[in-house]
Amino acid sequence: MLNSLYRNYFKRVIDFTLALIAIILLSPILVLVALLVRVKLGSPVLFKQDRPGLNEKIFTMYKFRTMTDEKDEQGELLPNELRHTNFGKFLRSTSLDELPELINVLKGDMSIVGPRPLLVEYLDLYNDYQSRRHDVRPGVTGLAQVNGRNTISWEEKFNYDIKYVDNISFLIDFNIISKTFMKVFRREGVNKNNNVTMNKFTGTKR
Rank of each mutant, 00 (worst) to 15 (best):
D124A: 14
V136I: 15
V39H: 07
D128R: 12
F170W: 02
L20K: 00
V31C: 07
S178T: 14
M1F: 12
N147D: 10
N193D: 15
L99T: 12
R187S: 12
Y160G: 01
V39S: 06
Y129Q: 11
T141L: 10
S93Q: 12
F90G: 02
V146E: 11
E101I: 01
R206K: 15
L78A: 03
T94I: 13
S131G: 11
A34E: 06
L96A: 08
W154L: 00
G114P: 06
R187P: 06
K11Q: 11
N159E: 14
Y164A: 07
S4H: 15
V190W: 03
L143V: 12
I112W: 05
D166G: 06
L82T: 02
D72K: 00
G148E: 13
V31G: 02
D173W: 10
R186L: 11
R7P: 02
S43E: 11
K107Q: 08
Y122L: 04
N193C: 05
D109S: 01
D166V: 10
V196F: 08
R116S: 02
D69N: 15
K183Y: 11
L54H: 04
D135V: 05
P28I: 14
L99M: 04
I162Q: 03
Q145V: 11
L18E: 03
I177G: 05
Y160T: 10
D166W: 10
I177Y: 06
L54M: 05
N159S: 12
L91E: 13
V45W: 09
K192A: 07
N159A: 14
I152Y: 09
K183H: 09
V190T: 12
M61T: 09
N3Y: 07
R83K: 12
K183V: 14
K157R: 15
T17P: 01
G42E: 13
Y122E: 04
E121G: 07
D97Q: 03
E98K: 04
N159C: 15
F174T: 13
F158Y: 00
F170V: 09
P117R: 06
L36N: 05
K205H: 12
V140P: 00
S169H: 07
D124G: 08
D135R: 12
R133L: 13
L99K: 08
K192S: 09
K63M: 02
G189Q: 06
V105L: 06
I103Q: 00
R137S: 04
N8S: 13
R133Q: 10
E121F: 05
I21N: 03
L30W: 01
N193E: 13
L82S: 08
K179N: 08
D97Y: 07
E155R: 02
H84L: 11
F181W: 15
T60R: 10
V31T: 14
H134D: 00
D50W: 04
K200R: 11
K71H: 01
R7N: 13
L91S: 04
V120D: 06
D173I: 10
R38P: 03
D128I: 09
E76D: 04
N175K: 14
D124S: 15
T202E: 05
L36K: 12
P100F: 01
K205L: 13
E76T: 01
N199M: 04
I177P: 01
T202G: 01
D97A: 06
N191P: 00
S153Q: 02
R206A: 14
I172D: 07
S131I: 13
E70V: 07
M198L: 09
